[in-house]
Each structure stands twice: as C-alpha cells, then as structure tokens.
Computed example of a mutant assay.
Amino acid sequence: MEIIRAKQFKADRSWGAKDIANMNGVTTRLHWTKEPYKWHVNDGEEVFVVLDGTVEMFFKEDGLEKSALLNTGDIFFASVGTEHVAHPVGEARILVVEKEGSV
C-alpha cells in the first residue's frame, strides 16, 4: 500500500519517473517534466493523464501535425502507431500507462 502525492513529486531530471505499478506487463508511472519529450511512436497503446500543469500535445493524424492543449485532469489516448510528442507549459506531472519498455 502506498499513497503518492502527485503534486509534490519532482524528479531529478525532466521526464524522470516514479514507477507505481507493473500489472502483467502494463506499467503505470508518474513523470515530472519542464521540457518537451521527443517525437515517438509507442509499440502499444498509451494513456497520458495530466495530473498537474498544462501540456501541449502534438500528434500526427493522416500525415498532418495537430496539437491539443491538455490541462489538469485531461487525458490523451495514443492508439498503436500514433506519432506524438508532449510539450509542457512550465512544470507538469503526468501519469502514463503503457506497455512495459515503451519509449
């Protein structure tokens, strides 16, 4: 049993994470960042939940680059093959649920 105060979590580097659970190869991790990630495609589905802060999520749909502003409480679902990159606006804390070993 563990209680995690997400708003108090801060990693020693951007995109540093606290591993919360691994359930049959599906990981749940809490990330802290103040810098963009990198364009990538996961090898499985990904659920991306903004717990604190704001993130501009860029993604490609039908070959076109689009973006959506995600605020605290918003969820982004990346289906298999969705190319995307997260750009926090200031500091952000994000819960990511994805296949173990994903980028």
Score class of each variant (00 low, 15 high):
57 M>R: 03
33 T>H: 12
66 K>M: 07
76 F>L: 07
26 V>C: 03
24 N>V: 04
39 W>I: 08
41 V>E: 13
38 K>L: 09
81 G>T: 08
39 W>S: 10
23 M>L: 14
75 I>F: 06
38 K>E: 12
29 R>K: 15
29 R>M: 15
71 N>I: 00
82 T>N: 08
29 R>W: 03
62 D>N: 15
72 T>Y: 02
33 T>E: 09
71 N>A: 08
76 F>N: 04
47 V>T: 13
95 L>F: 09
41 V>F: 02
67 S>R: 13
81 G>M: 11
15 W>R: 06
27 T>V: 15
25 G>A: 08
30 L>T: 04
26 V>P: 00
25 G>Y: 06
98 E>M: 08
63 G>E: 04
45 E>T: 11
40 H>R: 11
45 E>K: 09
73 G>S: 09
102 S>N: 15
77 F>H: 14
43 D>V: 04
68 A>F: 01
23 M>I: 15
22 N>A: 13
79 S>M: 07
63 G>Q: 08
34 K>L: 02
19 D>C: 01
95 L>R: 05
43 D>S: 06
57 M>D: 00
95 L>D: 04
30 L>R: 07
89 V>E: 12
19 D>Y: 04
63 G>M: 12
93 R>C: 05
74 D>M: 13
80 V>C: 01
98 E>I: 06
55 V>F: 03
36 P>D: 05
89 V>D: 10
59 F>C: 04
95 L>T: 04
90 G>D: 08
54 T>S: 07
27 T>L: 06
60 K>P: 00
27 T>I: 14
81 G>Y: 08
72 T>D: 03
53 G>Y: 07
101 G>T: 07
47 V>I: 14
47 V>Y: 06
36 P>R: 13
18 K>W: 03
102 S>M: 05
94 I>S: 01
62 D>K: 13
94 I>Y: 03
35 E>D: 14
89 V>I: 15
18 K>C: 02
41 V>K: 10
72 T>R: 14
69 L>Q: 06
73 G>M: 09
71 N>T: 11
94 I>Q: 06
88 P>L: 11
51 L>F: 05
24 N>I: 01
64 L>E: 14
22 N>F: 01
26 V>G: 00
57 M>S: 03
23 M>Y: 05
22 N>E: 15
88 P>Q: 11
39 W>P: 03
44 G>P: 02
58 F>Y: 14
54 T>W: 00
28 T>M: 13
90 G>E: 09
82 T>P: 01
93 R>S: 07
29 R>L: 10
99 K>I: 05
42 N>M: 09
38 K>M: 08
95 L>Y: 02
19 D>T: 06
35 E>T: 11
97 V>T: 13
54 T>E: 15
65 E>F: 05
47 V>N: 01
91 E>F: 05
17 A>F: 12
81 G>P: 01
71 N>G: 12
43 D>C: 03
79 S>H: 10
44 G>V: 05
63 G>Y: 09
51 L>I: 08
45 E>A: 12
63 G>I: 09
